[in-house]
Design a protein around this nucleic acid. Structure first.
Lengths: 238, 238
DNA sequence: GTCTTACAACTGGTCCGACCACCCGACAAC
DNA sequence: GTTGTCGGGTGGTCGGACCAGTTGTAAGAC
C-alpha cells in the first residue's frame, strides 16, 4: 500500500521506448534510427535527453553510434550481454517461458559447478554462514518474499566462497534478473520449492569436502525448484 | 603497419580516466565523485561530456547517480557485470593472471556443458559447419591470428547449436574480453594450442550423439589450451 | 529550551541554440 | 571514366540558463 512512486527521468522513458522497439523487432538490425534532431522533435524533448537515451541503448549493445553516419540498430543476439535479460524475460508483463527455461537450465549448471568448487575451497566461516541462512529458512513464519531472498542469499554466499571473480560477475547478472522481476516470479512459486532439507544436504557435503556430492545435492535442489515452477506455470520444458 | 588511428571522443577519455580510478581503487566504494561542474572544470571540458562519461560509468555498475545527491562510487564486485572484464583483465597492459585463471576455469566449464547440450540438439548442418571450421584450422598456412579466430568461431558455432539464448549472451561477453585484448593474448599462445585433433574428437562425439563424450573431449581441448598458456606465461594456477 | 518551518545552497536533470568534426553523395572539372 | 570539390546530412562539443530534487541550517513558534 502506498508504494513509493517511481519518478522516471525523461531520458529513461525515451530509452525504454526505443529499447522496446528494438527488442520487439519493430526496429530491425541494420535499420537506421531516426536522427537525434528528429527524435527530439518526435518525443518532444530536448536533444540532450535523446542523446542520453541513445547512449544507454549503445551500452546495452542495441545500437551503434558513429559520428557522421546514421545510428544503426545492431543484432542484439550477437552483441548483447546478460544485462539484456531483465528486459527480455518479461517484455510486456508476460513471462517469456522459453527464455526462462534457458535461464533456469544455465542456473542449474552454474549452481552445480559452484557447489563443486565451493567444496574444495570453503572455510568453516563459510559453512556457518550458509547454515545460518538455512536456519532462517526453517523458520515457519518466514514469508515467501523472505524465503526467496534467503534462497538468493544462499546462492550468493556459495558463489563468494569460490573466490572466482568471473563467477561473481556472472551471478550479479542473474541476480539482476531475479530482482527486477521479483514480483512476477513470486506468483509462480510453490510453497515447497524452498525446502531447507535440500540446502542442508548441500552444506553437509561441503563440510565433508565432497565436491561431487555437493554438486549433486545442489543440482537436486535446483531441479526441485524448477519442477515447482513449471507445474505452476502450466508450461512444458522443451 | 599504418594501423588505423583510433580517435577517442572526449567523453570516452573522461570515462576511461574515472573508470581507471575506480577499478584501481583510488576511488573507493561510497566515496563521492566530485560534482559534474567541478569535474568539468578539472578536465577542462563541457559539462555535457562529463555527464556522458558518468552515464557510461553508471551503465557499468561503477557509480550511482541520484538527483539532489552526490554521485557515489559503488562496489563493482557487487554490482558489476561481465562487461567489466575487458577492463579488469589487463588494467595497465599487464595481464591480471589470477583473474585470467578464473576466466579460463569458467570457460572450461562452459565449453564442456555447451558440448554436452550440443550433442543433444545438433543438426547435420551444425556438424558440417563445425567440420568446415576444423578443416580451415588444419591448413598449415593459417596464421596464429587466423587460428585464434577459428578457435573462437568454433566455440560460437557450438553455442549457437544449443539454441540457449542465455548462453549466447554469456558467450558474447566472453568474446568481448578476447577481442578487446586480442593482441595481448596472442603473445601467450603456444603453437600447438589449436591442435585440430581435439576439435575433431568433439565433433565426432557430437555426430555420434554422445553428450558425455562430447563434453569430455571439449574439456580436454580446453585443458590443453590452458596448459599451453600457463607454461608460456610462467605462472602457476592456484 | 525544543520543535517546527522556511530558506539557502548545494546536487543532478532538462532545455536552448550555436558551432565543430566527420561522412557521403552529387556534381563539376579534367 | 577519374578525380576533386563542396553542400548538406550525421553525431560531438560547447556555454549558459533554468528546473527539480536533497540537505543542512537558521529563523520562527510553542
Amino acid at each position: 500500500m502506498f508504494a513509493p512512486i517511481k519518478k522516471q527521468k525523461v531520458a529513461e522513458q525515451v530509452a525504454a521506448s526505443l529499447r522496446g522497439a528494438i527488442l520487439s523487432g519493430r526496429l530491425k538490425p541494420s535499420d537506421a534510427v531516426p536522427s537525434e534532431r528528429v527524435l527530439a522533435e518526435r518525443f518532444d524533448v530536448n536533444r540532450s535527453s535523446i542523446r542520453e537515451a541513445l547512449l544507454r541503448l549503445e551500452s546495452w549493445g542495441l545500437i551503434e553510434i558513429r559520428q557522421g553516419e546514421a545510428t544503426r540498430v545492431k543484432n542484439f543476439l550477437e552483441s548483447g550481454g546478460l544485462q539484456l535479460l531483465p528486459y527480455l524475460i518479461a517484455p510486456d508483463g508476460e513471462l517469456d517461458l522459453p527464455l526462462l527455461a534457458d535461464l533456469l537450465e544455465i542456473r542449474v549448471m552454474l549452481l552445480g559447478w559452484t557447489a563443486e568448487q565451493a567444496a574444495q575451497k570453503c572455510s568453516p566461516e563459510d559453512i556457518s554462514g550458509l547454515m545460518e541462512i538455512i536456519s532462517r529458512l526453517e523458520d515457519p513464519g518466514a514469508s515467501p518474499e523472505t524465503r526467496q531472498k534467503l534462497d538468493y542469499d544462499f546462492f550468493e554466499r556459495l558463489v563468494a566462497t569460490t573466490k572466482n571473480r568471473v563467477l561473481i560477475f556472472l551471478s550479479n547478472a542473474i541476480r539482476d534478473v531475479y530482482m527486477q522481476q521479483r514480483g512476477l516470479f513470486m506468483t509462480f512459486y510453490q510453497d515447497d520449492v524452498f525446502d531447507p532439507r535440500y540446502y542442508r544436504a548441500v552444506v553437509e557435503a561441503l563440510a565433508a569436502g565432497d565436491p561431487l556430492g555437493a554438486g549433486q545435492a545442489m543440482r537436486l535442489q535446483a531441479a526441485v525448484f524448477d519442477a515447482g515452477w513449471w507445474s505452476t506455470s502450466g508450461a512444458e520444458t522443451t
